[in-house]
Amino acid sequence: MARIILDRLKERFGADVLETSSQHGDDVAVVTPARWREAAEFVRTDPRCACDYFVDLSAIDCCDNGDPEARFEVYVIAYSVARKHRVRLKVRLPEDNPEVDTLIPVWVGANWMERECFDMFGVRFKGHPDLRRILLYEEFKGHPLRKDYPAQQAQPLVAYREGTYDKLRPFLADEGMPLDRTFKAAQDPD
């Protein structure tokens, strides 16, 4: 397995690698926010890691751990096409003003993922050239994948029409609602 990456990381960053694990065969290393970019750069360029393939970047809202200093976990997954191993780097960010260095200089592909992460979680990326919302619209308030955002709280851009039916009403058509219209069998053309 790719223990080699974890070993190399520990060798290089010492105490800045906060923990490592290999649950279910996925190698994970948690690094400090200060050395996040450096660690990613190392994983990509070190000849024995050589993780040149950018796989994924996103975040997890760990609001249940009771530690406001580590509410968000941002992770990045990288893969080495040549060596066929992958690693997941993580960084823990505080609840207010979660901010971490951007990884665009390391993998260009991080651009949209970081925008998405900002959109969904409100994590900011220092040095990102174009940190806009990507999946939602500019007028949207809040960050929906945070656990405290109610899933059904919509923010419509177009005012709803008057007198529309409630969500489930059309299915009540059989009870004599104005929607009721039975489908007449098609007549034979003469």
């Binding site: 393939y53 950018f54 096409v81 260009v108």
Partner: peptide, 18 residues
């Protein structure tokens, strides 16, 4: 393609055997 994380037929079209 690699740096962008492109995969599948598109990456293979660019000659990466992944």
């Amino acid at each position: 393609a690699l740096a962008y994380g492109v995969s599948g037929p598109m990456l293979r079209g660019s000659g990466v055997d992944y």
